[in-house]
Amino acid sequence: MTSQQTIVDISQAEQGTSLWHDAWLRLRRNRLAVLGLVVLVLFTAIALLTPWIAPYSYQAQNLELGASPPSAAHWLGTDIFGRDLLTQIMYGGRISLAVGFVATSVALLIGVTWGAIAGYVGGRTDAVMMRLVDILYALPFMIFIVLLSVVFGRNMLLLFLAIGAVEWLTMARIMRGQVQSLRQQEFVEAAISLGLSPATLIRRHLVPNALGPIIVYTTLTIPNVMLLEAFLSFLGLGIQPPQTSWGLLISYGAETMEEYPWLLIFPGLALAITLFSLNFLGDGLRDALDVRGAKD
């Protein structure tokens, strides 16, 4: 850094390497993480385009065909009603991925805000806010879901909310810890002495610096949530027919796995590949965002 040329406008200055950019460069060197990212992007794209690219219509049945193994006409075979399994998995993926991303976003939004406020304000506010988190933690999750579905009936929105309502707790704790340690840093004091309002301070100075661990935790939360959904659907508490999800498909597949193993194998594979990809990406992000590994 010895360039001394005088510039007259900031747009002429060379753009520096931000820590985000630096982390991205490191992530790109991690093959597994990149593979995970590519798979996720692919699956997401397929899920978005499903109504247009699915080989068969979602409702199309062929009772005469029944359950048939993979063939040229039905790549992944058909179920006992003669429905194309690939089409089922594609539509199921829409629901599973949506639950994963939406519920995690809900958790992220609530958790980050809640944790940042508790950590920044501190004192009694912090104590009350975190005790509430502790209480929610202590609620048995299954009973919570069963209660919700009894009271409100079964619908997907409720499922999103219920899962989000559980997953934000850890997020809030992580965020609070981050903010508490950042608060001690001199740049936060500097921001206070400039006269910044607490809201601006949290938004501009605290959240961006606390985001590293949060992002990592997010990528590890999505598979958690998807598993939860699969688990709930498997138990019959989640997604209801005629809608379908990977969890539901696995549940049906498991019933008939001795006669028609492909009905279990393919939905299971779709879920497993997605979870692996998310975990690889999460690991890669953790390494890439780890400041100890970064220069300086």
Binding site: S18, E186, E189, A190, L194, R204, P208, N209
Partner: peptide, 27 residues
């Protein structure tokens, strides 16, 4: 606060690592 400011001890901790020089000085 505009009329009184502070210079801190540790230049590694007193600058927001996510902000460019421009952002820091413009704020």
């Amino acid at each position: 606060r505009r009329r009184m400011q502070m210079i801190f001890q540790d230049p590694f901790a007193s600058l927001n690592p996510r902000m460019t020089v421009y952002d820091t000085l413009a704020e």
